[in-house]
Design a protein around this nucleic acid. Sequence first.
DNA 1: TATATATTTAGATAATTATCTAACTATTGA
DNA 2: TCAATAGTTAGATAATTATCTAAATATATA
Lengths: 96, 96
Amino acid sequence: MKKIFKALDDPTRRKILDLLKDSDLTAGEVADHFDMRKPSVSYHLDLLKQAELVVSVKKGQYVYYSLSTSVLEDIVTWLMGLKDSEAPSSDQAMSD
Amino acid sequence: MKKIFKALDDPTRRKILDLLKDSDLTAGEVADHFDMRKPSVSYHLDLLKQAELVVSVKKGQYVYYSLSTSVLEDIVTWLMGLKDSEAPSSDQAMSD
DNA sequence: TATATATTTAGATAATTATCTAACTATTGA
DNA sequence: TCAATAGTTAGATAATTATCTAAATATATA
């Protein structure tokens, strides 16, 4: 969870996720959407990968990135848990 | 959304939200749950307040904090939007 | 009124993060 | 084989963030 929250706390990374929502993209194609050097975009892609929000597949000289949103389950569950405070509090340590 | 993602990207603040899920607390009571000085906790409470994830009410010399999760709607909607648009590519077809 | 308690504000500092340039690896194709 | 292209890694730096101590504000109470 820690890494996912961190990954989501950045406008560039959130925009990358939105882009990948529409279609898989190479690292270069992702970079084309930003006014930023490629190594910086690579850095953001790496953080998204660490959070397991994206996966990458190398095809020849290209690296394709695509969304992988199964890890969002936990976060959505936690957020919904905040919303109905009357729920039985199975107090697991997601906060750390 | 920016401020909400920022507010959520910290273990102390996430734990504060979990605490407030169970009951409203004064700033001091919140601080008691952490190995951290009161001004630091006050700082975190302020960020949560800026994100409108908590509200505070002063009663005498105490300040009570409570959860205010309506702003989570947007985030949950956005997250679910990412999930829904999964797999535009060569992945497995959905089973019927 | 004076003192204690609860909380926040101000200012300093250490830690973390995002960005850059330069250099490196891997792959393609002439 | 060599040059071009795609992408990442390394190292430096600026910006942001989390923490602390000291001081300020507000309230309660003896």
